[in-house]
Amino acid sequence: MSEALSVSSSSQHANDQRRQSVKPHKKRWRHDNWMGYLFISPWLIAFFAFTFIPIIASLVLAFTNYDVLSPTWRWVGLENFERMFTRDPRYIKSLQATFFYAFTAIPLRLIFALAVAMLLNTNRRMVAGYRAAYYAPSIVGGSVAVAVMWREIFGRNGLINAVFGTDVAWLGNPNTAIWTLILLAVWQFGSPMLIFLAGLKQIPREFYEAASIDGANGWQQFWRITLPLLTPIIFFNLVMQLISGFMVFTQAFVITGGAPLDTTLFYALYIYQRAFVSLQMGYASAMAWVLLIIIAVLTVLVFRSSSYWVFYSSQED
């Protein structure tokens, strides 16, 4: 990076110098590099203090029984990992809840995002205004305030019960609670929508013109032109959403707290509960590392599968 910077910023004068001799230039480069690291040192410090060192610490903790309050802790080997899969029914439930959520909410959100993106990919008046309006939920959607609002909407005296005249405990019923969270996730379709929209704008008009001359209807155009040309965008969105889907926390933490019957006990929420409520840092760290492995494996699978369904137009050339 710093090399690129120094090249791009170098003036004609510098180029002359380079031609004259190599040695002074090398010295200069070294100096720039040094300064560069110094300038990004605030970032480096924060990275080491808040990311790198905690990551290493959690890896070590995963093999201990560290519980925050006790001054001492013990090396327990693989006990934490063994406990997860053999002696913790709640862990299995949290896996079920997370997988169910990820495999329902993510496809629904992507489908919805694509549908709205196609609606907005027209040249009607006010389309920019709609774009901003539809993107807004994603900006605020992850926030605590929206989660609190959601809880009120689905509360006993909330909007849904008032509008439909029902008296359903949406957040207390094991069959409905997770769907309120999935609905919230689908509503936050804004960022994949924007990416889809950008992708749609890349598709050349001529393809559609040619297709309609050949008599293809809208539906055929969508399946034969739009979707294949959009697969790289779908792929990107899928990977990003998959990763964030497995790390969902705020919504469940605020709206349901994992209840009822642990049907909304998402993985990250359970890690939080074990770490900061039960203070079992070792166990929670072990869970976090298993989550990393789960996400990594799923991401690799999606990447591997991409050669079968992702279509890059450049390959055709």
Binding site: F154, G155, R156, A169, W170, L171, G172, N173, A259, P260
Partner: peptide
Amino acid sequence: SREQEIAA
């Protein structure tokens, strides 16, 4: 019901 208790 427990459902309503949790929801409330």
